[in-house]
Simulated scan of single mutants.
Amino acid sequence: MKFDKADNFRIRPLRRMVQIAFLLITLWIGIEFAIFVSQLEKGGHPTISRPPGVEAFLPISALISLKYWILTGVFNEIHPSALVVLLIILATAILLKKGFCSWVCPVGWISELLSGLHKIVFGRRENLPRWLDYPLRSLKYLLMFFFVWAVFGQMNLESLRSFIDSPYNRVADIKMLKFFLEMSATTFWVLIILVFLSILIPYFWCRYLCPYGALLGALSWLSPFKIHRHRESCIDCSKCTRVCPSYIDVHKANAVYSDECHSCWRCVDACPVKDTLYFSITRRKIKLTRISYAVLIILFFVLGTALAQITGHWQNSISLDEYRYHIRHLNDSAHGHNRGQVSEYGNSRQYEQQLEK
């Protein structure tokens, strides 16, 4: 069953349009937030509102909020949209595999551009040998397990509340902005090295280091949708395998179950025989087309954020006066990260006493 008949689009330009749209939204949110913080720092009244979408860059806070929500049923009011965005992304992985990575994520888009430079430099795609590729791929899962273990295995309800309500978490969005705008030399050179490695080894960050991608890959096993191959019409040209950015042997699989598949659809586009490769549930029973997939990815984010706004789970509860206080004391020890010692954040309400004076 097809959801639409207009499936004559090549996937790359369609996916690129979706990527650029999300990239522009991300840049717009970042610029708005930078202006908002700058105006507060100057002591004036912001001419624009703080964009809640900036919390999408706070995955650790979102993960902590997720456990708090599971235990208490309460959306914390400090960074509610961080949890909303996390839930949307997790939902896309469960239904549509790792489509977030190849259709939405700005870092994924940058990785694609750098992989293009790799091809220009080397003339063809150079892959790491399997004996090195497999151990390196485990790094992102180790990082993922560390973060999941630190939050779900180590933090009790008291420590969750302590972190969520701490001065550090309240200004996590501002600290994230400062991280990029006031980049240290160490951070700068780490980014340069990652860029270099991503040109030398395509998708280096995404394939070997991204814990977010590892989490989505694990959840993608739950997805009912897979890339399927119709064996009877397959001519074994292996074009699908050669274009796969995740190095999956698509031409040998009846269905692609790999957690490395991020639903970029390149294999489907590369296949010279119509309907030999397709994205579906159990062998053509429910088949998604390219446009259907793109629409679903977009709808997840549009409807998810709309629902959050309707239910009051999008804007945070931090007032402008409180933001001004935090900005003035941004470098105080109370606003620093205690290296995981969440029970030692101190009196997270001390700023209220200051505001009352």
Score class of each variant (00 low, 15 high):
residue 9 F to L: 14
residue 12 R to L: 14
residue 16 R to Y: 07
residue 21 A to W: 06
residue 22 F to Y: 14
residue 25 I to W: 13
residue 37 V to R: 09
residue 38 S to D: 08
residue 39 Q to K: 05
residue 42 K to D: 12
residue 46 P to Q: 06
residue 47 T to I: 07
residue 49 S to C: 03
residue 49 S to M: 09
residue 53 G to P: 00
residue 59 P to N: 09
residue 65 S to G: 13
residue 69 W to I: 01
residue 79 H to C: 01
residue 79 H to R: 08
residue 83 L to P: 02
residue 83 L to W: 04
residue 89 I to Y: 04
residue 96 L to R: 06
residue 102 S to K: 07
residue 106 P to D: 11
residue 112 E to Y: 08
residue 112 E to M: 11
residue 114 L to G: 07
residue 122 F to Y: 15
residue 123 G to R: 09
residue 128 L to Q: 08
residue 131 W to A: 13
residue 132 L to Y: 03
residue 136 L to R: 11
residue 138 S to Y: 08
residue 148 V to P: 08
residue 178 K to A: 06
residue 183 M to P: 00
residue 187 T to M: 04
residue 194 L to G: 04
residue 196 F to E: 02
residue 200 L to S: 07
residue 203 Y to K: 02
residue 212 Y to C: 10
residue 217 G to F: 01
residue 222 L to N: 04
residue 226 K to M: 03
residue 227 I to P: 01
residue 234 C to G: 09
residue 235 I to F: 00
residue 237 C to T: 04
residue 239 K to S: 13
residue 240 C to I: 09
residue 244 C to N: 10
residue 247 Y to G: 01
residue 252 K to A: 13
residue 253 A to E: 15
residue 254 N to S: 12
residue 263 S to K: 05
residue 272 P to Y: 07
residue 273 V to M: 10
residue 281 I to C: 03
residue 292 S to L: 01
residue 300 F to G: 08
residue 303 L to C: 12
residue 308 A to H: 05
residue 310 I to N: 05
residue 316 N to I: 03
residue 316 N to L: 00
residue 318 I to Q: 15
residue 320 L to G: 00
residue 320 L to Q: 14
residue 324 R to A: 04
residue 341 Q to T: 04
residue 355 L to G: 05
residue 355 L to P: 03
